[in-house]
Design a protein around this nucleic acid. Sequence first.
DNA 1: CCTTGACTTAAAGTTGACTTTAACTTCTAT
DNA 2: ATAGAAGTTAAAGTCAACTTTAAGTCAAGG
Lengths: 150, 150
Amino acid sequence: MVYTIGEMAKMLDLAPSTLRYYDKEGLLPFVERSEGGIRLFRDSDYEFLKIVECLKKTGMQLKDIREFIHLVMEGDSTIEARLALFQKQRAEVEKQIAQLQETMEVIRFKCWYYETARQAGTTAVPDAMPNEALPEGLRAVRARLRKEME
Amino acid sequence: MVYTIGEMAKMLDLAPSTLRYYDKEGLLPFVERSEGGIRLFRDSDYEFLKIVECLKKTGMQLKDIREFIHLVMEGDSTIEARLALFQKQRAEVEKQIAQLQETMEVIRFKCWYYETARQAGTTAVPDAMPNEALPEGLRAVRARLRKEME
DNA sequence: CCTTGACTTAAAGTTGACTTTAACTTCTAT
DNA sequence: ATAGAAGTTAAAGTCAACTTTAAGTCAAGG
């Protein structure tokens, strides 16, 4: 099955201009052309682009994704390098998830803070509340925000 | 305790120019100045900036963070609005974590794929492997990458 | 008093990832 | 054969979030 740029763009839910930009940046060296110069995308290209999408979601920059694509093009001699890349990316994403979970703690604290303030009609109440009065799990969060302890 | 911009920047691990930029963008309306025009940061400003940092980590844009800061400056009349904001942000971060976990599945698949390829010396082996031969949890991932089923 | 390091501003420059524009070509359907 | 949709390129424009530069001011120590 072959697709035009517009069809492939729709399948991936992005703009055709984005695919052209990726191509210009060297991310799509595998895309073939018709006689007249029209890009012909294959199902295997879809698979490639799903991986590009995945790497983008991990925050990887296009120039690093290009490096990966070029490793793939070089064939089986780069299997080790590609494995290393994904192992590194796995650690990276684990870190990101941990980071977001920490951020979530702060947000949970702030939700509690404003719920308490709403009840009282003023933020002065949660502000003045002693540590022992706040929910267990939120004490450390407030302390960190206030730069108490380290 | 008051701090100069350089000291506060160090405490937050960012460049002084970043704090000046935030100020210019209206994110630091609470920062006072000395006679001579030098910014004076307080401990309470540190707390503010930690929240800015937190909101940035959720991917919120500076202009939206500015809106929040301005809600805070308006006082207790905006408690509801601020609570709503954090509740929205909580849902947002939950979505982000779920998204990263999906991404992690793909990366796990790729790690398996390249480990298998390394053993075999070629990616042809994992490519040709029937669904039943791959680890339980990775079958659906490969199917999604290949646009089999939905 | 004077040096020196850290501060100030306004304005311009940078980076990454696109998007838009303009001029043109190819493909498909009648 | 031709119209119109969708493709092509190169180049310029956009956006967010900073960073850098230039020219100058403030503040603390000797």
